[in-house]
Design a protein around this nucleic acid. Structure first.
Length: 1008
RNA sequence: GGGUGUAUAGCUCAGUGGUAGAGCACUUCGUUGACAUCGAAGGGGUCACAAGUUCGAACCUUGUUAUACCCA
């Protein structure tokens, strides 16, 4: 039965993948023949995710390495898994909850909501796994991991212990003082109502406005305001009773703690230290000096809102200014706490020097009643309007032309508030897309500065190598300037922070422990004997219970010094926050392998080998994994980090739904097959290269698959597989057969060197060039005369050689195109196991027969020259023509005799006669001789002359360069000997050719 | 503003001091017994610009221009 003309990827891929899985071909250690392990951790895709082209690219590279190592006998593990993706997943489930039941998350209890998330995960969490299988990923699915596995509320089937690892690390790091809690200015996402890290913020330039307000000096004071130009000439002098400030966010003025000016700013020197009236508020704030204000920007005076701006926060800390929080979790103006009057009174006392704790200041709500509860953008409008009404906006005169009813234009001047239109950088949440509000909140932090050292050393010392090298600089730069890492998130879906609070001296006192029971134990150790702790739901409940207990205590211990005297029930509640997703994925390498419960089966795969990931998460993830693995197990997580860019469309644009240029890898697989997509990915993978994916190139590599398919089809039609014995290495006599064996060996070395060096594009190109350019274009064509000949011995050796060469091609192509190669492997020979677990060859240069190599190059060169000459003088393609051997050396004669049949067939030559150069013939110069095609009457003399002259010109250019170099005495003196020798040999060959061409021209001149 | 890249054929890109390559596209020819998802032949480049190092520079150095991404 003859094979089909094409490989039906759609029909075969699923079947082939099932065969692999059934055979356990991807299980850790499959085909292992040595102790060396090779491990790759799949960067866990979000459990909410769908496979996109970025994954497809990323996974292709990993699969190539994994399959290659597995075939080479390494104890190989490709560890797969998914990330629980805190915000993204919670959002999905919230959306579904709203769509299905019209409910908000807050209408459910935390436990109920979490069980919905787990349900969701059970239903949709395997989608991406199935998609990865379609790409051909050879992951060990039996070890599939999940970053939330083993969490307290995890259902059956999610028993892993990733949660244990995360909690253990938190507790350990807390114990070592590497994790702390504090009130810090953080990026607050008002949509998700959680803090996010600075890496999750996108700063986007948007059209904004700058408003200018007057803050009047207290007590009606005035001062001389003087402006000078560059030369010191006075350009403005006036008496002012205010200082002018500029802001892009007017609503934050309600929380101002001061106005700052630069210490060297002469304009404001007279009023530094004085107080100003904060508009719309019953507060006075001081004018302070700080290096931060830019004298040339705006008025040079900056309002300082420590609780709502990162720069102001630093100024406020330096100048010890109070920081008043103005907004609530949703980004609306606060509507909690005491009445405005009460709060302002207290704020005045604090401003005057009264002691106050952080939490007391935070509790003060300095938003005037009027604005309370307003959305921040509404409040902005109201504040602007009210300040303008109060006459405190800086005004300017605008002249415009107005047409009256009769169309007569008149100029009208009016005085309006001065508002500049200018682009401003505004922070947006990368997931929520809402404006991020810097906000002073209580959060947990990793003191990253304390653990970066080993991570920096590991890369500096080369324990871990980053590819491309530029990644190292970026890595160092970031780690050297690392900021505390905010790891708490105000979400429900995630690893809840293992901290419980009990009443403390001033505030709640945190106790960090792996479990509730341990926390209670710890708390007991720190309390009076007999104290009992009661776990309550949250802070409110704890506060209520505490108040009750204190009342009881008052009655019990009346008249005595207050002290707890058992049995007392002390409230205890758990921190409601969860950990940043990147905290858990930071432990991916050890967490997936079962740490802290290592077993020999799992720990042998650590440290892992290569991490393949996008450049964009170098900070998010890679650097953090380095830090955390080194901090926890004191070992680098991987020896090589391969970073690649974002996959873009063919024009280099980012793919996005809005632009509509998204390429869906699954559609591509449907249309062209997974192998085509994979090979395209590999061929794009130049180190550090820009990745532009175009459907044209995918189509091209689909054609490549068809090409090798048809080469196999040709072999099959010529009974190659009936005779071919895979256990026997071919030892042919025919030059062509010897030659292709050498070409296989060269390719093997090239491919291995390329993969070794992570140059997947070079490996792919080498395979493409071999299979198409050598095997199909030449070997199959050259073998035809041998296969059609009657000689049994030649026929047998050619079939054996072709079978072997094809097998080698399949083996070497397998990591790149696993499906089609596996299918052909099974077609060529049944009952020999799966290609996926077949051994990779090790042969090298010893298979190259130098004589055969030289001879075939001579033959190919001759055929090409004849073809080229024929085409250029328009000899009909089908016409067979005679050829004359004018002169030829011994090697040439041997080469001719050995390959006469195939040269004549491929060059369409019907006879060869030995003789003198006929008149009007085309000269075919070859190494060691000259042939001629007698085409008098057929060729156009003038055209042929032009052709030869053009060749001469090209030669002359080359000769000029070569001669110039060789004539230069410094070249001979400085250049290496082999380079000089090569140049000389090259010159000799070119000169010989030039002579032949000149002779040919001379002969043409004789004729016409 | 700081950092990191990139600039080579019409397009997409390789190129590791020795004189320029691939794929696609294009032109011409061809269904010769694997493949038209194919074959044969061909055209096409001042390697962004300038200076320097070198016997020799696409490659190393410096500057300029353009451009991309990351961080402010």
């Amino acid at each position: 039965m003859t094979m089909d003309k094409i490989f039906d990827a759609k029909a075969a891929e699923k079947r082939i993948y099932d065969d692999w899985e059934k055979a356990g071909a991807f299980k850790a250690g499959a085909n292992a023949q040595r102790d060396d392990t090779f491990t790759i951790m799949l960067p866990p895709p979000n459990v909410t995710g769908a496979l996109h082209v970025g994954h497809a690219f990323n996974h292709t590279l990993q699969d190539i390495m994994v399959r290659w190592h597995r075939m080479r006998g390494f104890d190989t593990l490709w560890q797969p898994g998914q990330d629980h993706a805190g915000i993204a997943t919670q959002l999905q489930v919230e959306k579904k909850l709203m769509a299905d039941e019209g409910k908000k998350r807050s209408e459910l209890s935390r436990d109920d909501f979490l069980s919905r998330v787990w349900d969701w995960k059970g239903q949709y969490g395997t989608t991406i796994v199935e998609q990865m299988k379609r790409l051909g990923n050879s992951c060990d699915w039996s070890r599939n991991a999940f970053t939330m596995s083993g969490a307290p509320n995890a259902p059956t089937g999610e028993e892993g212990n990733f949660h244990d690892a995360v909690i253990k690390v938190f507790v350990e790091m807390h114990k070592q003082g590497l994790i702390y809690r504090g009130k810090r200015l953080t990026n607050w996402d008002p949509h998700f109502e959680t803090a996010i890290s600075d890496l999750e913020v996108e700063n986007i330039e948007v059209a904004g406005h700058m408003w200018h307000f007057k803050y009047k000096l207290a007590g009606g004071d005035t001062y001389e305001y003087v402006e000078k130009d560059e030369d010191g000439n006075v350009t403005l002098r006036e008496t002012r009773d205010y200082i002018s400030i500029a802001t892009t966010r007017p609503e934050t003025m309600l929380g101002d703690g001061a106005v700052a000016v630069h210490p060297s700013d002469e304009r404001y020197a007279p009023i530094v230290g004085k107080m100003v009236h904060l508009p719309l508020c019953d507060r006075l704030i001081p004018i302070v000096t700080d290096e931060y204000p830019d004298k040339d920007f705006g008025s040079g005076a900056v309002k300082i809102t420590g609780a709502h701006d990162f720069n102001d926060y630093q100024v406020a800390k330096r100048c010890k200014l109070p920081m008043y929080r103005l907004m609530d979790r949703k980004g609306a103006m606060r509507d909690d706490g005491e009445a405005y009057d009460v709060c302002v009174d207290r704020a005045r006392e604090i401003a005057a020097g009264a002691e106050a704790t952080e939490s007391e200041i935070d509790a003060l709500n300095l938003v005037p009643e009027k604005y309370r509860g307003m959305d921040r953008f509404e409040a902005r409008k109201a504040v602007i309007a009210d300040i303008t009404d109060a006459g405190l906006a800086v005004m300017h005169t605008v002249t415009k032309k107005v047409k009256d009813d009769e169309g007569v234009e008149t100029e009208v001047s009016e005085v309006v508030p001065y508002v500049e239109n200018k682009p401003v950088m505004q922070p947006f949440g990368d997931r929520s897309k809402v404006v991020i509000e810097p906000m002073l909140t209580d959060q947990w932090f990793v003191d990253a500065e304390k653990i970066v050292g080993p991570a920096l050393d590991a890369v500096r010392d080369g324990k871990t190598q980053i590819i491309p090298d530029s990644g190292r600089k970026v890595y160092n730069h970031w780690l050297e300037n690392i900021e505390p890492w905010c790891i708490s998130r105000q979400l429900w879906w995630g690893h809840q922070i293992p901290v419980w609070y009990v009443p403390g001296q001033e505030d709640w006192y945190p106790i960090c422990a792996a479990t509730e029971a341990e926390a209670i134990e710890k708390a007991k150790l720190q309390s009076a004997d007999g104290t009992d702790f009661r776990i309550v739901a949250d802070e409110q409940e704890a506060a209520a219970l505490l108040a009750e207990q204190i009342k009881l205590m008052d009655t019990k211990n009346e008249g005595e010094i207050r002290s707890f005297e058992g049995p007392m029930e002390v409230p205890m509640f758990r921190d409601p926050d969860v950990l940043d997703t990147w905290f858990s994925s930071g432990l991916w390498p050890i967490g997936t392998l079962g740490w802290p419960e290592w077993t020999e089966e799992t720990s042998k795969y650590f440290s892992t080998d290569v991490l393949v990931t996008g450049q964009d998460i170098l900070f998010f993830w890679v650097a953090r994994m380095m830090m955390m693995q080194l901090a926890v197990v004191d070992e680098v997580p991987f020896h090589t980090i391969y970073l690649h860019q974002l996959v873009r469309d063919e024009k280099g644009k980012k793919m996005s739904k809005t632009t509509g240029n998204v390429i869906d890898p699954l559609e591509i697989i449907d249309e062209y097959g997974a192998d085509a997509l994979r090979f395209t990915n590999a061929s794009m993978a130049a180190i550090g290269g820009v990745l532009k994916l175009s459907e044209d190139s995918i189509k091209g590599y689909r054609n490549f698959g068809t090409k090798i398919w048809n080469a196999a089809r040709f072999a099959e039609m010529n009974q190659v597989f009936e005779v071919y014995d895979p256990s026997v290495m071919p030892t042919p006599e025919a030059t062509v057969n010897k030659w292709i064996i050498g070409e296989v060996a060269k390719t093997r070395a090239e491919v291995d060197a390329a993969i070794e060096a992570y140059r997947f594009n070079d490996a792919a190109n080498a395979l493409y060039a071999f299979v198409w350019g050598k095997f199909c274009d030449w070997y199959v064509e050259l073998a035809k005369p041998l296969l059609f000949a009657e000689d049994e011995a030649v026929l047998a050796e050619t079939r054996q050689t072709m079978g072997w060469a094809l097998d080698q091609a399949l083996i070497m192509l397998h990591p790149f195109m696993p499906f089609i190669t596996e299918e052909l492997w099974g077609t060529v020979q049944t009952d020999r196991g799966l290609l996926a677990v077949t051994d990779w060859p090790t042969y090298g240069a010893e298979l190259i027969d130098a004589d055969a190599d030289r001879e075939m190059n001579w033959v190919i060169n001759l055929i090409e020259r004849i073809r080229s000459s024929r085409a250029e003088v328009h000899v009909p393609a089908g016409l067979k023509i005679p050829m004359v051997q004018v002169d030829l050396d011994e090697a040439g004669k041997t080469a001719w005799t050995n390959n006469e049949a195939l040269i004549m067939k491929l060059a369409r030559v019907d006879s060869l006669t030995v003789g003198a150069m006929p008149k009007g013939a085309i000269t075919i110069p070859v190494e060691g001789g000259t042939f001629a095609l007698p085409l008098e009457g057929v060729i156009d003399i003038a055209e042929e002359k032009a052709r030869l002259e053009k060749s001469m010109q090209k030669l002359a250019k080359e000769l000029g360069g070569l001669r110039g170099r060789l004539k230069n005495p410094k070249f001979a003196a400085s250049a290496p000997a082999d380079v000089v020798a090569e140049a000389q040999a090259n010159l000799a060959a070119r000169e010989e050719e030039e002579a032949k061409l000149q002779a040919a021209l001379n002969r043409l001149a004789e004729i016409g």
